[in-house]
Each structure stands twice: as structure tokens, then as C-alpha cells.
Amino acid sequence: MSSNLRILVACKRVVDYAVKIRVNAAGTAVETANVKHSMNPFDEIGTEQAIQIKEALAKSKGNAEVIVVSCGPTKSQETLRTALAMGADRAIHVETNDELQPLAVAKLLKAVVEKEKPDMVILGKQAIDDDSNQTGQMLAGLLNWPQATFASKVELSEKAMTVTREVDGGVETVKTPLPAILTTDLRLNVPRYASLPNIMKAKKKPLAKFTVADLAVDIKPRIEILKVSEPPKRQGGKLVESVDDLVDKLKNEAKVL
């Protein structure tokens, strides 16, 4: 395994996965004010993976530096502090209050990659808010780096990684040279909790700030959101008394058997 590795992990601050979201009255967006936010679950897995690689390398007298990056408003720094508390070494915040779509984020990350020159960039396979599943692939395309998406297992060797990917119907294993892009699937690992002492220590870790102008990237949205609406409600909640009753209803009422 290469003895010195630099890993960049991208993290997004999103509405917490357990929140039942609401569409705003104007029908233009989802209410995000005063709603609990946290790190996108797939990015927690990405951060955990980077830290596990760092820990594994430390055992063989190697070293990895884990840098976390987030693009968005000032509050994204909370997400970065969380990643630092998990064990990342330093953070980069690309600050903007403008709407960021995946292509814009990929371009911002590309600019960060060109500054930091990581051997590997880890991203979550998708953000649970826009559900796009694009940024990692786009970044790989912009950098012309190989990509291993939806990873459930990663093994590093000298200047390469072997990745087991979750695909329809099973798994596939690919090998890519480094530098490369990795996107995480749920099964890759179980992220650790940050301990209180580590949360305190994280406050002192370096956090560099950039503006979009510093990185000279055009982040203009390409996609216009015309309308956001509630999905049609289901008329559920009918209970049946017995298995016989259920079979009867499925045959004669729903006519699906």
C-alpha cells in the first residue's frame, strides 16, 4: 500500500433522514428553515471509510491525511466539524448561499482537487435530499479519473484500489489505478459516533474557507425548479380481520389474484 495517501471526502449538509419533510406553501421548495439537518448518511460512510484507511495505514507505518470538504452556506461548517470529530484531519469550506446543483458541486470539487492533489476522492453515492446520484461520476468525468461507484468493499494496494460495487442483481468487482473517485453504498461500513473529547478537539482542527470566486467556477444552475408538490396521498389504513378476509378482498375487491 502506498505509505502516504491523501484522501479528500465530500460531505453535504442535508435535512436529517428521519424528518418528515413538508413542501412550502408556495409550492416552490421543501421547508428547510428550523428543520433538523445532519450530514448526508452516505457521506458519513465516506468519512468513516477514509478514517479506516488512515487507521489501517498507521498500523503499517504509513500515513494518510483525510481532508473533508463541503460546499454551501455557513452552516455547512457544522457538518465539517462532525467529520473532523470522527477523525478527519482538516476541513475546507466552499461558502455560498446560492443554490448548488451536482454539476456545480463537481466543478467546485474539481478546483479543490487541483489545489489539494488527493490520491482519492470519496463521495456518497447520493444525497438524500435531491436524490440525484451524480456528483461523484461528474467529478470523475471532469478530472478524467477512473470511478468506482456504489462501493460495498474497498481494498487498497500499491497505487490502485479494488472495489466491490453493488449493481442490479448482485455485485461486481473492478480495479482502478489511483488517483480515483469512490462513491459509497450503505454496506461499505458502519460510521462511528464522535466522542465528546473528539468533538472538543475537532473545534481546534483547521478549517479553510474559500468562496466560489476564489475557485473561479461558474455555478449557475442549469435546471430550473418550476414547481414542488406533495406526492398523491394513498388511502391506506384498512384493516382486515383474518387471512380468509384478506384472500377474499384481494380476489374480489382489488382483483389482483
Binding site: 418528515k20 421543501v30 454539476l103 438524500i128 435531491d130 436524490d131 435546471i223 418550476l226 414542488v228
Partner: peptide, 30 residues
């Protein structure tokens, strides 16, 4: 840009797609 996971087509540049785990439906124009 890419428009992911569309569930409806309103015109050649306007599409419908679920967001937030299908708890909201967005109509977007590319």
C-alpha cells in the same frame, strides 16, 4: 446537467422527478 430518475415528461425540456425519498415531486426545466 443531468435530470435523474424522471417519472414524467411534460415537454422536451420539462420533466417530473421525485426528491426527498419521494416525499416531494419536483417539476424541473432544463
Amino acid at each position: 446537467a443531468q435530470i435523474s430518475d424522471i417519472t414524467g415528461i411534460e415537454s422536451a425540456d420539462t420533466f417530473v422527478r421525485p426528491i426527498y425519498a419521494g416525499n416531494a415531486i419536483a417539476t424541473v426545466k432544463s
